[in-house]
Design a protein around this nucleic acid. Structure first.
Length: 718
RNA sequence: GGGCGUUUAGCUCAGUGGUAGAGCACUUCAUUUACACUGAAGGGGUCACAGGUUCAAAUCCUGUAGCGCCCACCA
């Protein structure tokens, strides 16, 4: 390429693919093997679909950091990867299957269905990787990882069995969030609450009136609960038994006094359904009450419902209310009650809590930290995961940016319950536990001998992504990669997965390695649509980064996402801003045309005697800009770094110095030094701008005599 | 119910103690001589409101209001 190729205006769509090829051919993103290690993982993208603008922001920030540090001489490693996203992916395939062929997963064998999900995941993965490249992510593709590939699966089994032996993973029976649609349970974090207007029934229950939004669950209600201090019911004693006429005839009810009851709400009296409601379950636990199931795993009523047994709860409600009315048990109905319904946010159905035996990570169980590089936690000390999670952030060893998210993090820890990690879906890591009669065997691989059966459940997808900072580096092998790049240099991700992912990485790294996964967490905000709505397929407001790139180029998109956005703050996506940044790219292109036309060859520096005021001013301004950009990048203020380089290039170099140079070039005593400075400033700008706009800078660099790829060049010092 | 954030120019947002900023939009001039995806000049804000601290507050403190998010077992 030479100056005649600098057609006008700048066309990123022609230019960017060529640059991608050059980086690719050169292996430019591999760690150089010398310098201080600096590793960053790309948050493994779900193979449920393609990348969105949020990923583009992630890549823009991470790639700026990586390119900046690489130029500074660090041994950078940027690890790309994808996440199998267990439930979300399986739900998606099931939904498409039903839409296309009206079939469900139960119409196929486990193997055949799994094959379909895996094909879907593989397709999606190749699309994602191509997008990562298009967005300019300078990842080392040799380190590509997938949460469900063989190496990662081995890491997962190792982690599971070690945590099991440490007493941190246990099997327990308790109330879990059951999704009857997907036939699996999900963790508390995966639940989304939706408000719904529903009738609220006031029912006569012996001498009391109880209120409920869900009469279909009330068959087994044999405990009636009230607050111990409620004067209205003082004459009833805890444990007292009374006979009441109920849906299917008389039952014996027991009075329970518990201060969980809100005296102000409803009538101040309630009956409980411990097997299908978390609050009721907690009361039943406190008083050792029976927890009879009323609903089966498909959402149908059990024999306890008498004549209604076998009916689906969604259909049974009206019939039950009709019967209650015929028996005169309905006091009144409030038609406008607002009820909160729990829904599986991973494409599932309405949650129906069920008592089930599941696998948990116990966050309050003391364990011995065998090895520790975490300050304040001695090797051999006994702590709980909760304490570990709190300590790492509280002690400042994991610094969260912006700082206020640390408060959110602590708040979450304080309310944290054991993490339910087993799922009843088939796409994911099979739990490495085998049973034979009463024997339980937990190891990395199956036991020898006959008669063993493996636990049919799979793991929560976040279990494998929690290991990501080291599963990608070869752990449990003590690989050179692992020794060099763990802890990672920092973690960069969206604040929306602080609990799902960030906290659990701290947990796994601490418990298994006695290390922090990273010293810094930089959280970015959510990219919203121009009306500030969250983008989602169902709303139809998703903006595809590839469409934007086609119109304005990757450089412009990256710069627009960075410019004017601060850590942890949501942004409303504004196409006009991207257009503005495309203009900026064009500006640089034209600066280069001017410089190359007027100073086509390398010039050596003239002595300062011939320096003009403009010369001095531009050099001083360049020096300030280098300091400013460097400092802001080191302090994670990407927006200010971007603004600094933008202002210098456009308003100092172009608007002032280029204009001044037009006269200076006519003066023989100044011409040579001016040519030198034009080239010098532009070259410095290309380097400073490279992390932000890697494509246009890389393509201009050779025209100015840069011998090496800009990716591999040194960061400007002065 | 608990927690967190936010309110700055028409729009989208930076700015955290020292004379109010950017991008887009707008007005006037310049008409192609690196760039019209341009240049020069300019208009536009009592920085939500009320108190307080300070020589000095958009910035720190207290309170109020609007908006938003997260967490939570009101049946």
């Amino acid at each position: 390429m030479d100056i005649s190729d600098l057609l006008k205006p700048y066309d990123p769509t022609l230019n960017e693919p060529k640059i991608l090829e050059r980086w690719q051919k050169d292996g430019a993103f591999k760690p150089r093997g010398k310098g201080k290690p600096f590793a960053v993982v790309f948050p493994p993208a779900n193979v449920t679909g393609v990348l969105h603008l949020g990923h583009a922001l992630t890549i823009a920030i991470q790639d700026i950091i990586i390119r900046f540090r690489r130029m500074q001489g660090y041994d950078t490693l940027y690890i790309p990867g994808t996440d199998h996203a267990a439930i979300a992916t399986q739900a998606k395939v099931e939904a498409e299957l039903y839409k296309k062929e009206k079939k469900t997963r139960r119409d196929f064998s486990r193997e055949d269905f799994l094959k379909m999900v895996e094909d879907y995941a593989a397709n999606s993965q190749s699309a994602i990787l191509s997008q990562l490249r298009t967005l300019g992510a300078s990842c080392d593709w040799d380190h590509l990882a997938y949460t469900l590939d063989d190496k990662r699966s081995f890491t997962v089994r190792t982690a599971f069995s070690r945590l099991y032996k440490m007493g941190l993973i246990y099997r327990g029976t308790r109330l879990v969030n059951w999704d009857p649609k997907l036939q699996t349970n999900v963790s508390d974090e995966e639940i989304e609450w939706r408000e719904e207007v529903t009738p609220f029934y006031y029912l006569r229950y012996g001498p009391f009136v109880i209120a409920t939004a869900r009469p279909e669950t009330k068959f087994g209600d044999k405990y009636v609960v009230m607050h111990p201090k409620d004067e209205r019911y003082a004459k009833y004693k805890h444990g007292q038994k009374i006979e009441v006429e109920w849906i299917n005839g008389p039952i014996t009810a027991t009075i329970i006094k518990d201060d969980a009851v809100d005296m102000e709400f409803g009538t101040g009296v309630m009956t409980i359904t411990p097997a299908h409601d978390a609050a009721d379950y907690a009361i039943a636990e406190r008083h050792s009450l029976d927890k009879d199931s009323v609903i089966d795993l498909q959402g149908k009523l059990l024999p306890i419902a008498g004549e209604f047994a076998g009916q689906h709860i969604s259909k049974a409600r009206q019939l039950i209310v009709a019967k209650l009315e015929s028996k005169g048990l309905v006091e009144k109905i409030d038609e406008k009650y607002i009820h909160r319904v729990a829904v599986n946010s991973r494409g599932g159905g309405v949650i129906e809590p069920q008592i089930r035996e599941q696998w948990f990570v116990g966050v309050n169980r003391p364990f011995t930290l065998e090895h520790s590089e975490i300050r304040g936690l001695e090797a051999g000390s006994k702590i709980t995961l909760k304490q570990l999670l709190r300590h790492t952030v509280e002690s400042g060893q994991v610094k969260i940016i912006p700082e206020h998210f640390a408060k959110t993090y602590f708040h979450w820890i304080d309310n944290l319950e054991d993490w339910c990690i087993s799922r009843q879906i088939i796409f994911g890591h099979r739990i490495p536990v085998w049973y034979r009669d009463q024997e339980v065997y937990c190891e990395i691989s199956a036991p020898s001998g006959d008669g063993w059966t493996q636990d049919p459940d799979t793991l929560d997808t976040w279990f494998s992504s929690a290991l990501w900072t080291f599963s990608t580096l070869g752990w449990p092998e003590e690989t050179p990669d692992f020794k060099k790049y763990h802890p990672n240099a920092l973690l960069e991700t969206g604040y929306d997965i602080l609990f799902f992912w960030v906290a659990r990485m701290i947990l796994m790294s601490g418990a298994l390695l006695g290390q922090l996964p990273f010293p810094v967490v930089y959280l970015h905000g959510i990219v919203r649509d121009p009306e500030r709505q969250k983008m989602s397929k169902s709303k139809g407001n998703v903006i595809d980064p590839l469409d934007i790139i086609k119109k304005y180029g990757t450089d412009a998109l990256r710069f627009a996402l960075i410019y004017g956005n601060s850590a942890g703050t949501d942004m409303a996506f504004d196409e006009a801003r991207v257009r503005g940044m495309k203009n900026f790219a064009n500006k640089i292109w034209n600066i280069a045309r001017f410089v190359l036309t007027n100073a086509p060859d390398e010039v050596s520096q003239k002595q300062s005697a011939s320096e003009t005021e403009a010369d001095k001013a531009i050099l001083a301004s360049l020096e300030t800009t280098i300091k400013l950009v460097t400092q802001n990048l080191e302090d994670f203020r990407f927006n200010e770094a971007a603004q600094g380089i933008y202002d210098f290039i456009w308003h100092e170099l172009a608007d002032k110095y280029l204009e001044a140079s037009k006269n200076q070039l006519k003066d023989p005593s100044q011409a040579e030094n001016t040519r030198y400075l034009l080239r010098y400033c532009l070259k410095a700008c290309l380097r400073l701008l490279h992390p932000f706009m890697p494509f246009i800078t890389e393509s201009l660099a050779p025209l100015l005599g840069e011998k090496n790829l800009l990716v591999e060049s040194a960061w400007p010092e002065k």
